[in-house]
Design a binder for these strands. Structure first.
Lengths: 211, 211
DNA sequence: TTATATTCATACCGAACGGTAAATAAATAA
DNA sequence: TTATTTATTTACCGTTCGGTATGAATATAA
């Protein structure tokens, strides 16, 4: 792997590439890797399981994506760029209250989507782990923190725009919402149904700061 | 290991045991094992790390506690019987509201206790894992579910005793509280301070059902 | 002292781990 | 056709995994 990493090439070559063509589609392979990592976590996923799931031999995986860590990151990028797009959309809602509403109900539906693993990959990808996985663990922590910061900024904006009382502490409120979000992920991973998750959201949303 | 497992003997022998005495105290060893499992999870903890932490060689660990799974369960029993005792105490509070208050503030303080690992072992012990750890994973799920059931029963009692409105859905409320509890565990594991956790609790507690 | 019971230390087991060397297969370029 | 480039297959690397056989060490009982 060097700077001309295939997965990051933005312009497609005009002529056909020279050697033997790839026997698989990278995006589809990443989607399958994502599903495995999402289900069993970084540490709980073995290269052997990945070769089975992707239907690709190990050397081909390493040639295409790098090592296990790099593969996880690329699967994670696919996660944040795909299924979780609704989070970014929710931030654009007209009011803070609506942002949170879309965020949590979206999470309830997403976490219980039967076509994907339950819960949130960023929460359960590497919550605890051995030393060899601590880099990934820290990266996921940073991701969660980033989400919280974004939410906090959205609340600050809402205070400026007048749809959130001035006395509200944006950071604390963001952490509270993030806490519920992450707790819902645990619940979904542990088998909570969509209806149960939506009931949690309904209770949580009653707790919105009044002026 | 057979039915006369030393760690479960209820009556101490009157005479001194015959062979070479144990070179360590079982309770202290279990406490150290608990700390390691609590920090790194079931899957993230290796027998090598345990031998280092306990200062005991592997064969002695296996003789005293059984295999890794059995050791985890005994450490877990030490956890539920020790540090987490405040949960059971909170259930005895005079009102449902006070129960939840003690539960969540107790959790905030416990999860951020500097003398123990951050977060809740039952949440982060095996949230996701490979196939070889799924037995433990399911046991922890059952533990969390049990907590939720207990909380729900406490709310039912409160409805009988009149300190919780009749229209409240006890199961849903219990799941909501459990969700916050588990979310706080994630937060603590990810580095949230005691003050931040207490701020979350304060916000959450504003959301108590009125009659 | 000797026999017996129990624990401890060393050294090892097969299996699974992440990762790779080397040869073969399949495409384009000349 | 031949040379070149890239991907795939097979077989393997050293390390770590959970778990254990074996013999030495340390206690009590006789």
């Amino acid at each position: 792997m060097n700077e001309s990493d295939k997965t990051k090439d933005l312009v497609k070559p005009l002529t056909k590439p020279r050697g033997r063509p790839l026997g698989f589609k990278q995006d589809e392979a990443l989607d399958k890797a994502l599903e495995v990592f999402w289900s069993h976590g970084y540490e709980g996923t073995s290269m052997a399981e990945l070769t089975d799931a992707l239907g690709i031999n190990k050397p081909s995986i390493y040639a295409a994506f790098g090592n296990k860590e790099a593969l996880f990151r690329k699967a994670l990028a696919r996660y944040t760029g795909g299924p979780v797009a609704f989070v970014g959309e929710a931030m654009k809602a007209p009011t803070a209250r609506q942002t949170v509403e879309r965020l949590l109900t979206g999470a309830a539906e997403f976490f219980s989507d039967k076509s994907t693993p339950n819960g949130c990959m960023i929460v359960q990808g590497a919550l605890t782990c051995g030393q060899s996985s601590q880099t990934i663990q820290q990266e996921l922590i940073a991701y969660r923190k980033g989400f919280e910061v974004n939410l906090s900024k959205r609340f600050e904006l809402a205070k400026q725009q007048g749809d959130l009382p001035q006395h509200v502490n944006s950071q604390q409120l963001a952490k509270y919402i993030a806490t519920i979000h992450q707790g819902m992920s645990i619940q979904a991973t542990s088998g909570a149904t969509r209806e149960e998750l939506l009931a949690i959201v309904e209770i949580a949303l009653k707790n919105w700061p009044e002026s």
